[in-house]
């Protein structure tokens, strides 16, 4: 059981980060306002978690302008996808062990 706990990724312990990654796993990219709407959290909270995930290189950020408005969108990187899948597998194994 111990090595399963090692697979639990500390980066995803926050619910917000888990949420961000869940969304970016099934969407090619998503912009800031849409993420905020899905997760129902404040700008500051979302921004700080996005920055943390970006620092880990789990997500990539692209900035562009739509008309005159700046638009920032986020996408999961390959490293991020791999880390998140491993985290999910570890979660599932943990649950199935303690469920027995």
């Amino acid at each position: 059981m111990k090595n399963y706990i090692d697979d639990i990724n500390k980066a995803f312990e926050s619910r917000v980060r888990l949420g961000i990654m869940s969304i970016l796993m099934v969407n090619d990219f998503m912009d800031f306002p849409s993420l905020k709407e899905q997760l129902q959290i404040t700008d500051g909270n979302l921004a700080s978690h996005l920055a943390a995930l970006e620092k880990l290189e789990y997500i990539s950020v692209s900035k562009q302008f739509i008309g005159k408005k700046p638009n920032t969108s986020y996408a999961a990187t390959d490293i991020g996808r791999k880390a998140f899948s491993e985290h999910l597998n570890a979660l599932e194994r943990l649950i199935s062990i303690s469920g027995q």
Partner: peptide, 23 residues
């Protein structure tokens, strides 16, 4: 057991967000 409940909830959150955000 508490920890287990937390993990279950985390997985439920993930499922809902994946479905809700893409469909």
């Amino acid at each position: 057991m508490d920890k287990n409940q937390e993990h279950l909830e985390a997985i439920r959150d993930i499922r809902t967000l994946m479905e809700r955000s893409s469909r």
